[in-house]
Every structure is written in structure tokens, then in C-alpha cells.
């Protein structure tokens, strides 16, 4: 299933945050959206998944979601959004409730997804006992259990320290190689963008417009931190963004 974003414009009262966004997220690809802070990246993602209504324009699902997909558009949040009173198992069970699955079926699916994300031994642990990286792994498992068609990832690694971020990036790469998931990945971190994105979309400062789209052809598995090609792309992106970031930094947040 592809996602097509057509002429998307969004305003809060009189403040225009996004202007005429046109973008396609192709099946099996990761599209990274980068931009200076306050450019409306997160708003864009909320619009894409239907958590907010755009002022103008549409987001269109092209084709049918895969069979057995319980929640075609599934988010992964920056702050993990795990229920503190439920164990890892319970947190994943939450999103399977209300689909008419039997208890045995739910348990089977959760065990399966925990095994796939190598979390099986943490099934009965509360979020408070987990590190940030493990919490985000649980949130990823929770997203995978519903068989999403497109993952909408809102700065999923931004709340983590840089070592954990490296580890999780490796996890995401190997996960993509196994499952070939489709994702729209928001980040302000250019390194994440060049490591994970098949396509990197640069937004301008507010009101966010698409400034540039850069395709990266190196297979995800070969994108090590030292890859010179990748470094070059990252520098290129930074040069495109620099001016925007500088101006955005001096912008007032609310008018």
C-alpha cells in the first residue's frame, strides 16, 4: 500500500505551518523527513495518520493494506507512549484487544512479535524497569504486532542517548531487511536520515514546504557510519538545511 500526500496545507488559526506538501511514500521504502525545529514535521505526520485534519489537501491510501492488517497506519512515538501500569506483554495486548481475537490467538501473536524483536525475556516487566532504548523496542514490537501497512515514526530515537541510538538504528536496519516495512520517518538528525532513508525529504522553515528530495541508492545494510558516500550525502543535506535552520532558530514559536 502506498501513501499519497496531495497539496497538503495546514494552519493553526492564522499561523500557516505547512504549505502545499506533495509526497508519495512507496511500499517497502523508508521516507525520511528532515527539517529545522518547528517546521511542522510532527504536524505533517499527525496529518498523514489521521490524528489531525488538514486545512487543505488530502492524504490518500493507494491500494489495499496487506491482509490481516489490524491498523494500517501505525505510529511510533518519540516518548514511547507505553502504559506504565501494564507490563510489556500487557502493553502489546492493549492494541490487540477489541479485534475479536481469542485469548490464545492474542498470546500467540504477542509471543511471536516478542521473539521477532528479541524481547521474549522481558514480557512480564513494567516499563519503569526498562531503559529508554528497551522502551522504544517495546513500542516497536507493539507497532509490528498489528501488521501495519505503513509505520509513522515521529522522531523515534530522539529521546535516546547516542550509543543507544546507534544500537537501535542497527536494529531498525536489520528489521527492515527482514520485513521490508514501509515507513514515514520524521527526524531532525541527518545521520539517522541518511542511514535509514531510501529517500530524504527536506522541509523548509515554517511554513514547511518541500525544499528538496534526495534519493540514496546505497542498500541499507551497507550504510555503515564510516561510509564516505554517506558522509558526503549527509554534508550535502546539511548545506541545504543550514540556512533554513539558522533562520528557523530566530523565529518566534507562537504568534
Amino acid at each position: 500500500m502506498d501513501l499519497k500526500i496531495r497539496d497538503l496545507t495546514h494552519r493553526y488559526a492564522k499561523l500557516e505551518v505547512l504549505r502545499k506538501i506533495n509526497l508519495t511514500v512507496e511500499s517497502g521504502k523508508i521516507v525520511c523527513i528532515v527539517g529545522p525545529s518547528g517546521c511542522g514535521k510532527s504536524t505533517l505526520l499527525r496529518l498523514v495518520g489521521g490524528l489531525e485534519q488538514p486545512t487543505e489537501g488530502q492524504v490518500i491510501q493507494m491500494g489495499e493494506p496487506p491482509e490481516g492488517s489490524l491498523n494500517p497506519l501505525t505510529y511510533i512515538f518519540q516518548d514511547f507512549a507505553l502504559l506504565p501500569w501494564r507490563t510489556v506483554f500487557g502493553n502489546i495486548a492493549l492494541v490487540l484487544e477489541g479485534h475479536g481475537l481469542g485469548k490464545a490467538e492474542i498470546t500467540k501473536r504477542i509471543e511471536d512479535v516478542l521473539a521477532r524483536t528479541r524481547l521474549s525475556e522481558f514480557a512480564n516487566v513494567f516499563p519503569k524497569q526498562l531503559s529508554g532504548g528497551m522502551k522504544q523496542r517495546v513500542a516497536i514490537a507493539r507497532a509490528l504486532v498489528v501488521n501495519p501497512a505503513v509505520l509513522l515514526m515521529d522522531e523515534p530515537l530522539s529521546a535516546l542517548d547516542s550509543q543507544t541510538r546507534e544500537l537501535l538504528m542497527d536494529d531498525l536496519v536489520s528489521l527492515w531487511e527482514r520485513e521490508r516495512f514501509t515507513a514515514c520517518y520524521i527526524t531532525h538528525n541527518l545521520n539517522e536520515a541518511v542511514r535509514l532513508g531510501h529517500e530524504v525529504v527536506i522541509l523548509s522553515r515554517r511554513p514547511g514546504e518541500i525544499r528538496e528530495t534526495v534519493s540514496i541508492d546505497i542498500p541499507l545494510g551497507e550504510r555503515t557510519a564510516e561510509n564516505p558516500e554517506l558522509m558526503k550525502t549527509q554534508n550535502l543535506l546539511w548545506n541545504m538545511m543550514r540556512e533554513e535552520a539558522l533562520t528557523a532558530d530566530r523565529q518566534l514559536t507562537e504568534t
Partner: peptide
């Protein structure tokens, strides 16, 4: 953000 999470999973 927890409520938004619930909505995002179509609860």
C-alpha cells in the same frame, strides 16, 4: 500522549 497513542491504534 497516551490518549493519542490509543487513538492511533484505533482503540
Amino acid at each position: 500522549s497516551l490518549i493519542r497513542m490509543g487513538q492511533s491504534f484505533n482503540l
